[in-house]
Deep mutational scan, measured.
Amino acid sequence: YIGSKISLISKAEIRYEGILYTIDTENSTVALAKVRSFGTEDRPTDRPIPPRDEVFEYIIFRGSDIKDLTVCE
Rank of each mutant, 00 (worst) to 15 (best):
E17P: 03
T29A: 07
A33Y: 07
K67Y: 02
Y1F: 06
S64G: 12
I19Q: 04
A31E: 12
G18P: 01
R62Q: 15
I49M: 12
D68M: 14
R47D: 08
L20P: 01
I23D: 03
A12P: 01
V71P: 15
G18Y: 02
A12C: 13
D24C: 10
L20C: 15
R15I: 08
D24E: 04
I59A: 10
S7Y: 08
R52M: 12
F38A: 01
E57T: 06
L69P: 02
S4R: 15
A31D: 00
T45F: 08
F38P: 02
E41R: 01
Y58W: 10
D65Y: 02
K11W: 02
V35F: 05
C72T: 08
G63V: 07
R47A: 12
L8S: 02
P50L: 11
L69F: 13
R52L: 09
K34M: 13
R15K: 04
D24N: 15
D46W: 05
C72Q: 10
K5V: 05
D68H: 13
I23R: 12
Y21G: 10
G18M: 02
F61R: 00
I60S: 14
P51V: 09
D42H: 09
V35Q: 02
I14M: 06
I9W: 10
S10R: 00
P51H: 04
I59P: 00
P51E: 09
D42A: 08
D24I: 01
T22W: 11
E54N: 06
T22A: 11
K67F: 03
Y1C: 12
R47V: 10
L69I: 07
K34N: 14
P44K: 10
R47Q: 13
S28D: 15
T22E: 12
L20E: 00
K67C: 02
R36P: 08
D46N: 14
S10G: 04
I19P: 00
G3L: 04
Y21C: 15
E73F: 03
D42C: 09
G3T: 00
D42E: 12
C72R: 12
G18V: 06
A33I: 15
L8G: 05
S10W: 04
Y58C: 11
I6C: 10
P44Q: 10
R52G: 13
G3P: 01
N27P: 06
K11H: 06
T25K: 13
C72H: 11
P50E: 15
F61A: 05
R52E: 14
P48V: 15
R36A: 04
T22N: 15
I6K: 03
L32R: 01
V30P: 02
S37D: 08
V35C: 03
S28P: 05
I6G: 05
S10A: 02
E54H: 08
R52S: 13
Y21R: 14
I66K: 03
T45P: 03
D65G: 03
K11E: 13
I23F: 11
G18W: 01
I19C: 06
I60R: 14
T25A: 10
R36W: 00
G18D: 02
T70E: 09
S10K: 01
D65M: 07
L8P: 01
S64Q: 12
I6F: 09
R36N: 06
K5A: 14
Y16K: 05
T45Y: 03
N27R: 11
R15C: 02
R43T: 02
T40D: 00
K5E: 07
V55H: 06
A31P: 01
S37A: 14
D68Y: 08
N27H: 06
T29K: 14
R62L: 08
D46Q: 12
I14F: 03
I66A: 02
L69W: 15
T40E: 00
D68F: 01
E73T: 06
S7V: 12
V35T: 03
K5D: 07
R52H: 08
Y21E: 12
D68A: 13
I9N: 02
L20D: 03
E41F: 02
T40I: 02
Y16H: 03
R62A: 14
T25I: 05
V35M: 01
T29R: 13
E57M: 02
D65S: 07
S64T: 09
S10H: 03
D46K: 12
T22Y: 13
K5G: 10
D53W: 03
I6M: 12
A12G: 08
Y58E: 14
E57G: 05
I14H: 00
A33E: 14
L69V: 09
P48W: 09
D46A: 13
C72N: 04
I23A: 10
K34F: 07
S4K: 12
I60A: 14
C72W: 13
L8H: 01
A12T: 11
Y16Q: 08
S7F: 15
L69Y: 08
P44F: 11
S7G: 09
E13P: 02
E26D: 10
S4T: 08
T45N: 13
R15Q: 05
E54L: 05
R52I: 08
S4Q: 11
